[in-house]
Amino acid sequence: MIKDHFIFDMDGVLIDSEPAHQQIFKKVFEELNLEFSLSYHHTLVGMAAVPMWEKIRSDFNIQTNARELMNFHKEFMYVAIKELDIQVVPDVLPLLDRLQEMGIKMSLASSSAEKLIQHFVDKFNIRSKFDFLVSGESLTRSKPYPDIFLKVADLYNKKPDHFIVVEDSNNGVRAAKAAQMTCLGYNNPNSGQQDLSQADAIVSSFAQLNQEKLKQLTGV
């Protein structure tokens, strides 16, 4: 089966934003008088906003509605994210170029809010690389459920076995496999000690994905 469609996660795969999200979460937790830890934050990586705050609300026995908590977090984040130095993940831009040259279709599927997705694809001038930009905030279920990846497949009107998903989180890998798609795990140290063992292949640098390796993965 030729796998001629790639789906990229955004945070930790296209942009190295997890340290920034960590800083913002720490400040938000302090404002809410919640105990912050890196290990707990790593369990949230890859989740969309509402399910994430439902989890936090349950874990910390918070009475405030999850959407109110989410809105507080978003307002805080939209201000802070523009002030932080967030860059693209090393070697990912040449990878996008190689895939485009091979005729591979590409889309972005992220649990981040649509506003953030739009901000970063414009900031790094990569909007034209992707056919579709899909945000998890438009879906009822978040990663590790497969809904966001299946939505991309529906947009292309293609079966899941045509797709390779690139993910850096345990939640994302589980979602890709639940969607019955091939998953390429990217081991980003800034994303914490994520369990990517369910991925079909794992790389620690996108420079490893030369044209020969990509041909092996895709069959193109």
Rank of each mutant, 00 (worst) to 15 (best):
K143R: 06
D195C: 05
Q216D: 13
V152T: 07
D161H: 14
N210Y: 00
R127S: 15
N187D: 14
A113T: 10
Q194C: 11
V121C: 14
V203F: 02
P189L: 02
K158E: 12
S107A: 11
C183V: 06
A113E: 10
L196V: 14
Y186D: 02
A109W: 10
F132H: 07
L155G: 13
R127W: 09
V89L: 05
K151H: 08
L214Q: 02
G185V: 05
D195H: 07
E137G: 03
R174T: 14
I126Y: 04
K177N: 15
V166H: 03
L209E: 02
S128G: 14
T182P: 06
K215P: 13
E212A: 09
P90A: 08
S204I: 05
N171D: 01
K151D: 08
G172Y: 09
H162E: 13
D154V: 07
E114C: 03
P146I: 12
K151V: 02
S138Y: 00
L93C: 10
Q193M: 11
A176F: 05
D122L: 15
S204R: 10
F206I: 00
N187C: 12
D122N: 15
V152Q: 01
Q193W: 04
Q100A: 15
A175W: 06
R127A: 15
S135G: 03
E101Y: 02
Y145G: 14
V165P: 10
D97C: 04
